[in-house]
Design a protein around this nucleic acid. Structure first.
Lengths: 330, 330
DNA sequence: TACTTAATTGAAATCGATTTCAGTTTTATT
DNA sequence: AATAAAACTGAAATCGATTTCAATTAAGTA
């Protein structure tokens, strides 16, 4: 069923049917009624592809995430849908599996008028990213990383880690281990570590490389990293750069026969849903990922609505220190 | 940049450019080279919408999920991408927030040639679902629920719960509580409960309504349900219909001053990622959601490839009993 | 060499909607 | 009643690709 068929059945032209469907332009009451009757009767739904082509917009937002099956990503997407739904926009999701290659490809592909805007939750920003992004003909908003010239929704990693570090020190800890990730991830790998290093200095604590381990994002990585640290030295507190790493670390510490938090305190970052249900409940930093998705979507719509060039800005998402029992005062 | 512009720059017709792009039809080597040079130089990427309209396929698969920010859903989507990626298909995700209304709307909307096929992870199947589904002009595969006339990827809930129940009884438990969900969810609400009831009968255990509580899917619901049960009676084991419910139940049991598994054993179903990192680690049933996504996608492509009507079939996904320490032998 | 077949090319139709434009009918105003 | 303004309508152009079709050229064969 196409618009032509409806037109024929209702005894009008396709133009009139279009006017009825979109409720614009003049249509006499009786014709409108006739058209509406036919539409209802045959259950006509217009071809969205044809509409998109003619209207030069698809009403689809492209979303690029490193891995959808991750609490962070799925919550961000949740937040995005919350906003897009109010505008009747659909979401095209590109799962890149953390591969830079895929990320670039998705950016390129989505830009070809398939989507009206793009939100990318990035783990790494390379020169190639920036180059492709600049060529984009649709607005782009970045979540989680800074990218010059684009609106970015960011987590205030430096302050969060600093607050957490201060809290750990204030709780009486001096030997604080750090489990981080690769430096290519600026926000999580670099900034969070820098805040740790600056924290040490501020409190005049010595930097001990034996207490620092860098790994991937998985729980298993946390386990490995912690094991490596324990082979060298037993810290009184461990600051892991994500909750998953913290969970892995806890496991490793227990497997070595130590108790948490009596022997070693552990903290994470992110506040995954289950953080409070672990035993002991995890001390961590709460980020509202859903909110960041919402804000990114709002920013994107702002840019799409704007005719002239939009001024990029960095938006920082609030965080909360969540004090639970995985950290013990000494 | 459109195909016409490329044609002009390369000194050929749009038809020739199209032939080069899609590598079909005859094109002389020199013209091909010329066209390829221009394409590369200007970084031409064809308008996907226009292609879709002309080709009568969008190379997009629609995915309808109750809530993307759920481990189950996001893993399913992960599995789907795994398969769609090999075919260069994109994913359009409709997040319905568990609202039937939204589910129906999404089905209707997606069908209008916007997508080439649909995968729906349903929680409930109403008559309205079936009616809309029958009118669809694109193939549809269902995950998690049975729907007459459509290919369904199912979890063998009855057998899984039966195995688990047997294991609990074999471990010496007689007072087994049950935390379930609404019966409108046939697979989780109805079948899992029926397996519990049949289990009682098979082992000649009395049915005690005080030991059964029905709630929503959240952790909090598990807490509420367990609290209600504990007000009446103290079971030796609790069978929760999802891991999240189990986690809530564990919390409630602890808050009443009982130990797990010494005083009360608890089991879940689903085997979420963190199940093994809880303390005690959760005894549960492992479902491979990612695999179900993959299989659903493969089935969908099969149908899309097929010219004639495809014969619907039910496919059951394997499960594994995962024995951990949240259940204690008596 | 004559003739068949294969290779090459671009003009124009097509996909299914929207919108402009020009023509026609109503309605409002003086 | 005359005229201006508003309401209504459909034919045709358009969005940006693909593909058919017919025309032309090159290659192969007897």
């Amino acid at each position: 069923m196409k618009i032509k068929d409806i037109a024929k059945l209702a005894g009008v032209s396709p133009a009139t049917v279009s006017r009825v469907m979109n409720n614009n332009g003049y249509v006499k009451a009786d014709k409108r009624k006739a058209v509406e009757a036919v539409i209802k009767e045959v259950g006509y739904q217009p071809n969205e592809i044809a509409k998109s082509l003619k209207n030069q917009k698809s009403k689809i937002i492209g979303v690029i995430v490193p891995k959808i099956s991750t609490e962070t990503a799925s919550r961000i997407v949740d937040g995005i849908t919350q906003v897009t739904k109010t505008r009747n926009y659909q979401l095209l999701i590109a799962n890149t599996n953390q591969q830079i290659e895929e990320e670039i490809n998705s950016l390129k592909f989505l830009s070809n008028k398939l989507v009206d805007g793009i939100i990318m939750s990035a783990t790494e920003v390379t020169d190639q990213h920036i180059e492709v992004a600049r060529r984009l003909t649709v607005p782009l908003v970045i979540i989680g990383q800074k990218m010059e010239g684009f609106t970015c929704v960011l987590y205030n990693n430096y302050n969060a880690v600093t607050d957490l570090f201060n809290y750990i020190v204030d709780s009486g800890h001096q030997e604080i281990a750090f489990i981080g990730v690769d430096q290519r991830d600026i926000e999580v790998g670099q900034i969070r570590k820098q805040a740790y290093l600056d924290g040490l200095e501020r409190h005049q604590l010595p930097y001990n490389p034996d207490l620092v381990a860098i790994e991937d994002f998985s729980i298993e990585s946390g386990y490995k990293a912690m094991t490596r640290i324990l082979e060298k030295r037993l810290p009184t507190a461990v600051m892991a750069v994500t909750d998953h790493l913290a969970i892995g670390a806890i496991q490793a510490i227990r497997d070595c026969g130590y108790r948490i938090p009596e022997d070693v305190s552990v903290t994470g970052i992110g506040d995954i849903k289950l953080a409070q249900y672990l035993s002991p409940p995890l001390t961590t930093v709460h980020y509202n990922f859903k909110t960041s998705g919402q804000i990114a979507a709002e920013q994107l719509f702002n840019q799409m609505d704007q005719e002239e060039k939009y001024v990029a800005e960095d938006i920082y998402i609030d965080y909360d220190l969540v004090i639970r029992n995985s950290l013990k005062k000494r």
